[in-house]
């Protein structure tokens, strides 16, 4: 469903959703959210681990 091309003739950017800027922005936000989410999860894990040895 994400293919941005229908033929290999005169192709430039051919990756999935290359013709859909909205989707590309959405994926970018998703990537950023995963990074932020990972850091937040590590902070929560650390706080829980440190609480156990108080």
């Amino acid at each position: 469903m994400g293919s941005s091309i229908t033929t290999w003739e005169n192709v430039g950017a051919y990756f999935t959703f290359a013709d859909n800027p909205f989707a590309l922005v959405l994926f970018t936000i998703g990537t950023a959210a995963i990074i932020v989410g990972l850091i937040v999860s590590i902070i929560r894990h650390e706080n829980a681990a440190f609480d156990k040895i108080k």
Partner: peptide, 12 residues
């Protein structure tokens, strides 16, 4: 990161 230059491109 949402530019078409930042991904697979036959010409690039």
């Amino acid at each position: 990161p949402w530019s078409t230059s930042m991904g697979p491109d036959v010409q690039d």
